[in-house]
């Protein structure tokens, strides 16, 4: 599966990339909202993982923008205490969420679900 990961914390970005690559996915990195949307158009990923709080464009705006004309599943990452934003994201069409601190192996398992759906 081709996965786009949007996260402004470099270490988190690399950690997620490492985990996904180990699972055999192709990973595209984006470090802020604008970059993410550009890469969505350019690479047309099968899944998007995005932090909910990023510079230039919030994760919510990304969800809104992507869901406007695509069906790409989106998983959002949020810090604890952002319940409001999580609910908002779901209202806008997000498919799943993970809160930090998170476990990379849990992320891996959740992603597998989308891989299965993607293959159908």
């Amino acid at each position: 599966m081709r996965v786009l990961v949007a996260e402004d914390d470099e270490l988190m970005l690399r950690t997620i990339e490492f985990r996904l690559k180990k699972d055999g996915h192709e990973v595209i990195l984006a470090r802020d909202g604008r970059d993410a949307l550009q890469k969505v158009d350019e690479y047309e990923p099968d899944l998007i993982i995005s932090d909910v709080m990023m510079p230039y464009l919030s994760g919510l705006e990304i969800v809104a923008a992507v869901k406007e004309n695509r069906k790409t599943p989106i998983v959002i990452l949020s810090g604890m205490g952002h319940e409001d934003m999580v609910l908002e994201a779901f209202r806008l069409g997000a498919d799943d969420y993970l809160t930090k601190p998170f476990s990379p192996s849990e992320l891996s398992v959740r992603i597998k679900r989308f891989a299965v759906i993607n293959q159908r």
Partner: peptide, 8 residues
Amino acid sequence: YGLLAGST
């Protein structure tokens, strides 16, 4: 600040 801005 990022963490706290989302706090209700």
